[in-house]
Amino acid sequence: MLRPFTLALLVTVLAAALRPPAAHAHAQRVSISVGRNGFESVVDYTLDVEAGHEVSLTFTYADGDLEDDNPHDIRLKGLGLELPTVRVSRDQPTATLTFTPEKTGRLRLLCVVPCLGMENLVGGVIKAAKPRATGAPTSLTLELRPRDDGSLLARATLLDAGGGPLTNAPIVFTQRTALGGDLVLGRPTTMEDGGAVVKIPATGSEAIRVTAAFEGGDGLAYAEAYGEITAPGQPMAHQPGPLAAPTAPPALALTLLIVLGGVWTTYGFVVVQLVRIRRR
């Protein structure tokens, strides 16, 4: 149980469950394997679920290759839910946790084995979103285009079931961040042609994943679209200031040389005087 720095929680979620590409299904059953290795591989792990719908998480013991048993205690914390701690071990290789998040917000998946310095290690985040609206089907398409200045233009088009544009509808554009979060880029409303646009600043040749979502309501169904693009801009040139430059600026080096050289030369003078005092 107590293996400082080596015992950590590895949560591997099936890729399909991580981020469904289309409208979210209500079947919220997820398998998660739990092992000993570092959590670097899971810091970008985020699981989306819907509030008001039952979620079932099945944890599977993944340390069977170890000579000794390496049990893991796992707890879900957040949204005011009182859930039991579940354990997976060699004797009990699977455990299931079923709950219904009533509120929207975040749940944290914690490893509660008290490793020194790593108590309550966060192994993943579960985001409970509000239930998605149902009603007349809508379709949302997303187009990502590079601009001349190196930035990107994201254009989402919202159409009704008959292919007609839906105007004045809010579209939420988000960008997936490096640490697995979602950065809201803007909430523009659709124009005459059903299109809504946002400009995305991009500083270099980086892969950008953008999601556009229409929340629905007023008899219209939720719709979501996502796309990925590599920003075409050149990587930002490294522009170090004088203090971050790879080599010391000559003026700085010269100043230090003069100041320190002067001081230490004076020290030398003092030592010489001491020697002369001794000889007199």
Partner: peptide, 15 residues
């Protein structure tokens, strides 16, 4: 090697 000579005093003060 201090003996308190005037020269030692002068040098010490200067230093």
């Amino acid at each position: 090697g201090w003996r308190g000579t005037p020269e030692q005093h002068a040098r010490l003060e200067r230093t």
